[in-house]
Write a protein that binds this DNA or RNA. Structure first.
Lengths: 130, 130
DNA sequence: ATGGAAATGATAATCGTTTCCATTTTCGTG
DNA sequence: CACGAAAATGGAAACGATTATCATTTCCAT
């Protein structure tokens, strides 16, 4: 449970955000993260949350991706890389392994001479309950 | 160059949008499509553009995806379903096949009992020129 | 303590998208 | 052709996420 290896300039806000993201484990939007911190009594401002997230993304400490409606969501990157199977109806989410994807991404990137390769992949549909 | 096989209820606006999308070939945002039509003298309203696109997406005539900044972009679907390999530095984009992904998405969705399955997948990195 | 730089957060501004609603167009029927 | 209902339209306002502004506060090194 190391809080990070990147010993860059981290301010209080950055650390708070990282802590919440570690705790919640998955994705969260800026607004959600803000609410969580507020609910815990932290008076942090929305502006600061956006700023901290932006800087964490720049430093490659968190990943930024998009929900289907375009809202930005963030997650700690590095450790557990997995993908999601999301129900379009109820929003239920299953974490799945993406071994095939990893290989695909690597192969394709090599074929075209790309370096520092990352990828995103999500599957969405209607779950059995809906 | 058939204008479509889906002989559903299509109004004038739907057809205009399809025409522009066919002409431009690639992706375009709602705002861009609106501007293009306006520039051509069509007095179509932004609201109508959004409405038409929405309905075309519902009828699975166009695909909706997202730019990196979250803006919605549309393209005629049907033709070639492919994925993108994007350079984070210069923005250069290569279209790639995703056979492996299609299979993966299908398999995973079945395993968890999901229906009406779709997926997104992008690879990003630094291209050889950068 | 003190001055300056960095951080903060309330407020306002932006921008894409959606909702509202009054008006216009389309179209089937008499 | 006329009439009315239903569908389509578009301008304006509403909305929600994100960003910019700017005055105030916190941090530190001196």
């Amino acid at each position: 449970m190391k809080l990070s290896a990147a010993t860059k300039r981290m301010n209080k806000s950055d650390l708070k955000l990282i802590a919440v993201l570690e705790r919640t484990g998955g994705f969260a939007s800026a607004q959600e993260l803000h609410q969580i911190l507020r609910r815990e009594g932290d008076g942090i401002g929305l502006t600061t949350v956006y700023r901290a997230l932006q800087s964490l993304v720049d430093d490659k400490i968190v990943d930024l991706l998009r929900r289907e409606d375009g809202e930005a969501i963030y997650r700690l990157c590095g450790d557990n890389h997995h993908h999601h199977l999301v129900c379009k109806s109820c929003g239920d989410t299953v974490e799945i392994e993406g071994g095939a994807i990893e290989k695909w991404a690597k192969t394709m990137a090599e074929e075209f001479g790309f370096r520092e390769v990352g990828h995103t992949a999500e599957i969405f549909g209607i779950c059995s309950k809906c």
